[in-house]
C-alpha cells in the first residue's frame, strides 16, 4: 500500500465535504475490491472516505411491490433476509453465493454495484430485475446504470444510497463459478413480471447485459425449451484462460434454461 488518509464522515453532507477536501478521495464501502487493489499498489488515493459510519445507509425495507436495500447492507444480510428470501428468492441466493463468508460479511451491495466488476453477481440482479439505483443526487434505471467495464452512470462524487428491487412474479439465478475465484464465469438472471421477461447476463462480457432474443422467446412462452442455443453470439464475449468466448456463449444458453426452470419452481 501507499500512504493514504482516512475520513469517517457520519452524514451524506459530511461525505461530500470530505470528498471535496481530499486531493484524490475514494469511497470505501466494504473494501472487498478496493483493499486488495491498494495492497497491490494498483491505486494511490490520497484519502479513503469510509461510508461505514454514515447514518441511514444500511438496512432492508420490504414494500408492497418492491424491496429496498440500502447501499451499505452486507451480502450476508441480504442472503439471510426473510422478506427477500420469500419475495425474491434468487436475490437472496445470489447474495449467499458471493465470495466466501468473510467477503459476505464485509462486502456491500452499493460497493459491488458501483464497482461494476464484469464478473460480479449483483449487476445481474440489478439489471435482471430492472431495479432502480438511488443516489444522493437522483434515481437511475438499471438499464441506464451499467455503462461499460468497471464503468457506471455515476458522476464523480455521486454516491449510491439504496437500490430498489421490484418484486417479480418469478425469478431464477444460476451462476457458473470461476473455479479459482468463484466469481461468475457466467451468471444469468431471469425475471418475469406479468407479460414482461428480463434476462441479464454477468461474467460473460465486459459488462452485464440483457438478451432481448431470450426475453422475447420467454415472453411468448416462459419455459426452458423456449431458449434455443446460439441466441448470444460469441464474438463480443470475454475470452481468457478460464473460458473461451464460445464456451461462455454456450453456458449462457444452458444457464438461462436452468434459471427459467428455477423460476418455474
Amino acid at each position: 500500500m501507499y500512504d493514504f488518509g482516512i475520513k469517517n464522515p457520519t452524514s451524506i453532507d459530511d461525505v461530500k465535504a470530505a470528498l471535496g477536501d481530499a486531493e484524490d478521495g475514494q469511497f470505501l464501502a466494504g473494501g472487498q475490491t478496493l483493499i486488495p487493489v491498494l495492497k497491490q499498489r494498483l491505486a494511490m488515493p490520497s484519502d479513503l472516505i469510509s461510508l461505514s459510519r454514515v447514518d441511514g445507509l444500511s438496512g432492508i425495507t420490504a414494500g408492497g411491490d418492491s424491496i429496498s436495500i440500502k447501499a451499505m447492507t452486507r451480502h450476508a444480510e441480504v442472503a439471510a433476509n426473510a422478506d427477500i428470501k420469500s419475495a425474491i428468492p434468487a436475490l437472496a441466493k445470489l447474495a449467499g453465493g458471493i465470495g466466501d463468508p468473510h467477503v459476505r460479511n464485509r462486502g456491500t451491495i452499493g460497493g459491488s454495484v458501483a464497482n461494476n466488476d464484469p464478473a460480479a453477481d449483483y449487476p445481474a440482479a440489478v439489471l435482471g430485475l430492472g431495479a432502480t439505483v438511488i443516489t444522493n443526487e437522483r434515481e437511475i434505471d438499471a438499464d441506464n446504470f451499467f455503462t461499460g467495464m468497471f464503468d457506471t452512470a455515476l458522476n464523480e462524487g455521486e454516491l449510491i444510497t439504496e437500490i430498489s428491487f421490484p418484486i417479480p412474479e418469478a425469478v431464477g439465478y444460476i451462476k457458473f463459478p470461476n473455479p479459482a475465484t468463484r466469481y461468475a464465469l457466467v451468471g444469468v438472471m431471469v425475471a418475469k413480471f406479468g407479460n414482461t421477461v428480463r434476462v441479464a447476463v454477468t461474467g460473460a462480457g465486459p459488462c452485464v447485459f440483457r438478451v432481448p432474443e431470450m426475453e422475447q422467446a420467454l415472453t411468448a412462452s416462459f419455459s426452458p425449451d423456449s431458449i434455443k442455443d446460439g441466441l448470444v453470439p460469441a464474438d463480443d464475449l470475454n475470452n481468457d484462460i478460464h473460458a473461451s468466448r464460445e464456451y461462455r456463449a454456450h453456458l449462457i444458453g444452458v444457464l438461462a434454461r436452468r434459471a427459467v426452470a428455477e423460476a418455474n419452481g
Partner: peptide
C-alpha cells in the same frame, strides 16, 4: 481437475495469483 501453472507465449506467468490459479 483444476490446478494449472500456465505461461503465455511471451513467458509471462498467467496463473500468478489465487485469482487465476484454481485450488
Amino acid at each position: 481437475l483444476m490446478e494449472d501453472i500456465y505461461y503465455d507465449e511471451s513467458g509471462q506467468l498467467v496463473t500468478g495469483s489465487l485469482m487465476d490459479y484454481a485450488l
